[in-house]
């Protein structure tokens, strides 16, 4: 089981780091640029760019939108890999051998996905770093003002909120695609259909859960 978990960590967590870092850096940059470009009033403090970037990245972009992006990558991988095992009778082979196929296929993925918060830490850091780089090299604000904005009114409760929902999204990301792969019927075409359906359901569930958990944390 240890080997299986390590393989899933390799495929789903380490394998996602590249795309997560790339997207976070550039989205962070765009968030800070848009914030800076849309502040017309001279009454607005210069540190607002850093503040807005931090809040957008920590509260929503990194936990929620990264989870939806990973639904496309990790979720599709889970549904198609389990679905292919279903259509090629590999799951039947496990059952015939007396191996609990759900335990064998889903449990390692569930354990691996508990490490999603580590990926999100990278996303948060690089998102804010991207925002800083875009602000400085675009000449929208000074580095000290941006850093002051990042520190302004920092509330660790927001980080707790972000990681609690990241953990919930990780469980959604492991279970819904597994369900769609495990219970699929048909052939190769249906594996593709199951991946699409699982992506749609995963995204919908993540958005709805995000709404309710936000209500719960900020009543």
């Amino acid at each position: 089981m240890y080997g299986l978990v390590m393989k899933e960590i390799q495929d789903m967590i380490l394998g996602s780091l590249g795309i997560v870092c790339f997207l976070s850096f550039f989205v962070g940059g765009v968030v800070s640029m848009q914030t800076a470009l849309n502040i017309d009033s001279s009454f607005m403090p210069e540190n607002l760019v850093g503040f807005a970037t931090r809040q957008s990245i920590i509260l929503e972009f990194s936990p929620t939108f990264m989870a939806i992006i990973l639904t496309g990558k990790v979720g599709s991988y889970i549904t198609s890999s389990i679905g292919t095992m279903r259509v090629t009778e590999q799951i039947d082979a496990l059952e015939v051998m007396g191996i609990n196929s759900v335990n064998f296929l889903v449990f390692p993925k569930l354990i691996a996905m508990t490490l999603l918060p580590i990926v999100i830490i990278f996303s948060m850091f690089l998102g804010i770093f991207g925002g800083w780089a875009a602000t400085i090299y675009g000449g929208y604000s000074s580095s000290s003002a941006f850093v002051e904005g990042i520190q302004l009114g920092f509330n660790s409760y927001h980080v707790v909120y972000a990681f609690v929902k990241t953990f919930l999204f990780a469980m959604i990301l492991a279970t819904i695609p597994s369900y769609h792969g495990y219970y699929m019927k048909g052939g190769a075409l249906d594996v593709g259909r199951a991946s699409t359906v699982s992506f749609v359901w995963c995204s919908v569930v993540i958005i709805v859960v995000n709404y309710f958990i936000t209500q719960l944390f900020f009543p």
Partner: peptide, 19 residues
């Protein structure tokens, strides 16, 4: 049942090897 399953071997139509 679990013991019996260990006494069973199966060759599937499509081989069902783990890719």
């Amino acid at each position: 049942h679990r013991v019996l399953r260990r006494e069973i071997g199966m060759v599937f139509q499509g081989s069902a090897l783990f890719d």
